Amino acid sequence: MERQEFGVAVRQLREATDPADVGLPGGRRRVRGLRREELGELAGLSADYVRRLEQGRSHPSAAVVRALARALRAGRAEYEQLSALAGYAAADGQVPHELGPGATRLLERFPGTPMIVTDAGLDLVAVNSAFTALEHWTLTGHRWEWNIAYRTFCDPFEAFRQSPADAADHESVLVGSLKSSVLRYPADTSLAALVDELRTRSRRFDTSWRSPRAVGVYESAATISRPEGAVTVVGNMIALPGDDLAAVMLTAAPGSADAARLAELVGAAGGPAVVRVGRSGPG
């Protein structure tokens, strides 16, 4: 009975989800909501497995429940209902770290553009080989060596420089992101420890935390020093709300000397489109 009720709940959410709300084309459709194939792709599951779940012929893991809830943009109450029907307790305010299918596809489709993917706590989850080709992200062995906010405020990169205006915008975006994440994930002790560390070690962070400054659009430039010459890139953030991740793409002005230098660096790099990272380094 519980499997059947879980399947009914998934089907109802699927049929009630507007394709446009999850980044899919709308238009005229013969059925309401998402197709099983579309839900499967968004959640990283096969359409046949989604069918078996909806028919009550398979029992999902807790990770599958979370993936379905993220893919369907389910609210907290809906996620808790799905978890209960599947026999699990809902995750209580923990930052998700999984590299979802949407982020994976984004990295795979832009192998020649330096790109990173971060979770809601601003820890890097994955990068591509084009990003590692820049060779500016040095590792320190510190607990938060892969965290953008920590590296920006407490342990900046020697080869990474920004103008005062770009640095101010960049820092404001980081602080605003963390404040939002703390509200969404109040039980995540690692996130709370990170914020405490930043407020203790960085006066700039603490001041911005107490008096945050809104930034309309996140686009800031930075110059990365290289032995063969510096290259200036612009970072643009892309939100991936289904997995609560964000991607940052680094590009140079079209036709510029920086664009040519960046293309040379990336072209000589090689390597996989998706490089998972963590506390122990790329892997």
Rank of each mutant, 00 (worst) to 15 (best):
V231M: 05
R261S: 14
E228S: 14
P227T: 11
A253E: 15
A230W: 06
G255N: 11
I224E: 04
D243G: 13
S220L: 05
M249D: 00
A257V: 12
L262C: 03
G229Q: 09
P241R: 12
A259V: 04
A221F: 00
P254C: 05
A260M: 07
V231Q: 00
I224T: 10
A263H: 05
L245Y: 01
L240H: 05
G242Q: 12
E264P: 03
G235Q: 01
L250G: 00
A221Y: 00
T223M: 08
N236R: 13
R261Y: 09
T251H: 01
A263K: 06
A230Q: 10
E264W: 07
G242V: 02
V266R: 04
V248T: 15
T232N: 00
T223V: 11
P254Y: 05
A246E: 06
G229K: 10
E219Q: 15
A252G: 03
R226F: 05
D258M: 06
P241E: 12
V234M: 05
L245M: 10
S220P: 12
D258T: 05
M237G: 02
P254D: 02
S256I: 13
V231W: 03
A263C: 07
V248R: 08
N236W: 03
A263T: 10
G229M: 08
D243V: 09
D258F: 06
D258L: 07
A257W: 02
M249S: 06
L240Y: 04
N236C: 12
E219P: 03
E228D: 15
P254I: 03
A260E: 10
D244L: 12
G229H: 10
D258A: 04
L240A: 09
D243I: 06
P254T: 03
A222G: 04
L240N: 07
D243E: 15
P241T: 12
A263P: 04
A230R: 09
I224Y: 06
S225Q: 14
D258W: 06
D258E: 04
A263Q: 06
T223S: 15
E264T: 11
S225V: 13
A252Q: 01
G255W: 07
G229A: 13
V233C: 02
A253S: 14
L262D: 00
D244W: 10
A257R: 13
S256Q: 14
E219M: 08
V233G: 01
A247C: 08
P241F: 08
A221G: 06
N236F: 03
A239S: 14
G242W: 02
I238D: 01
V233K: 00
G242N: 10
A259N: 07
G235P: 00
A257M: 08
V266E: 04
A239L: 14
L250E: 01
A260H: 03
A257S: 15
L250M: 09
V231H: 02
R261Q: 14
T251V: 09
G235Y: 00
A247W: 04
G229Y: 10
A239I: 11
R261G: 09
D244R: 13
A221N: 05
A257D: 14
D244V: 12
S256H: 13
P254V: 04
E264H: 09
M249T: 09
L245H: 06
A222D: 00
A246F: 12
L250W: 04
G267P: 12
P227F: 10
G235K: 01
A246M: 14
A252R: 01
M237H: 06
M237I: 11
E228N: 11
G235M: 01
A253P: 08
T232E: 02
A246S: 15
A259R: 09
V234C: 06
G229I: 07
V233L: 12
G267A: 12
